[in-house]
Simulated assay, not measured.
Amino acid sequence: MKLLPGALIALSIATAPVVWSLAQTRWPAPAPGLSPAAETRLSALEVEAQGLRQALERLRGEVARLDAGRAAAPEPRRELAEGNDAASDSLMDAFAQVVLIADRRAANAGLTVATPGFLEEVIGLPRQDLTDDCQAATNPRLKDLLETADVGPIKARLLRPALVSLRQVFANVQVFEPELYRRIASAGSLCVRRIRGSQDSASAHAYGLAVDLNIDGVLDELADGRTQLGLILLADFFRKEGWIWGAGFGREDSMHFEVSREKLEQWRRLDLI
């Protein structure tokens, strides 16, 4: 029952005894010598009392109907009150759904990719004889900065400040998208190799500055302009923490997330790298 109609009904019922009393006693017969105007007024009041009595009966009928409807209403379904498993399953399925990436080239607006030249300037090459295969880092400075740690849903081997940053990303995901958090899987982090197609340029993975992720362990197809919905949601958390999303690359790689140049310059100012 809505608040205003309920209040009107309550008010009508509260005033009913007065109205009923007036209606039951009726108005006395006109006293001798009563003016025509007074007689007319008394007649009008009697008609009004009759109308109020009828309105009261209608209100009582409405209250009885509402009470009967409320008593007959079914109990709330327990699964809706406690969390519908079917709805939850539907939401979880949506995270793995593969969809087109809208306006992907604008995915990293405000952030800049750290070029191989910049990374080499800041840290040096991870090793001199880079190949297309993952190898061990031989650069002493880089080796000192690398660490393996549990960052929430996955373990990763990255630069120490990158691990701290990634842990913060996942902490935010856990708060705002706990179902998604539980579905995150890793497809790799540190991999000391050159960029595919280059001769001596090291990738962000070679510096421990990138991680590949997916939902439920299902790998994304490279360069098809599509990705899992869960990765699209994750991308916003990464961007706010200063990470680049590979979906914005010329050759779309939506599993890939790497630290932006802006973040690296911040770490350099803080003497973290």
Rank of each mutant, 00 (worst) to 15 (best):
K2A: 13
L3W: 15
L4G: 07
P5E: 13
A10D: 12
A14F: 14
A14P: 03
A16I: 04
P17C: 11
P17W: 12
V18I: 14
V19P: 05
L22A: 07
A31N: 07
G33N: 02
G33W: 00
L34M: 09
S35W: 06
L42V: 03
R53M: 04
Q54N: 07
A55L: 07
A55W: 09
R58E: 09
L59W: 09
P76G: 08
A87V: 09
L91R: 12
L91C: 02
A94C: 08
A96S: 13
Q97D: 14
I101Q: 13
A106K: 05
A114D: 03
L119A: 06
E120L: 03
I123H: 01
L130H: 01
A136C: 02
L142Q: 08
L145S: 04
T148S: 08
V151S: 05
P153H: 07
P153G: 05
I154S: 01
L158K: 09
L159T: 08
L163K: 03
L163V: 09
R167V: 01
E177Y: 03
P178I: 05
Y181R: 07
S186N: 12
V192A: 07
R194G: 11
R196T: 05
R196H: 15
D200I: 00
S203N: 10
A206K: 00
L209A: 01
A210S: 13
I215E: 15
D216P: 00
V218F: 09
G230W: 05
L234W: 14
D236S: 12
E241K: 13
G246T: 08
G246Y: 13
A247G: 15
G250Q: 14
S254I: 05
M255T: 11
M255E: 15
F257M: 06
F257G: 01
S260A: 12
E265M: 08
W267C: 02
W267D: 09
R268S: 11
L270M: 10
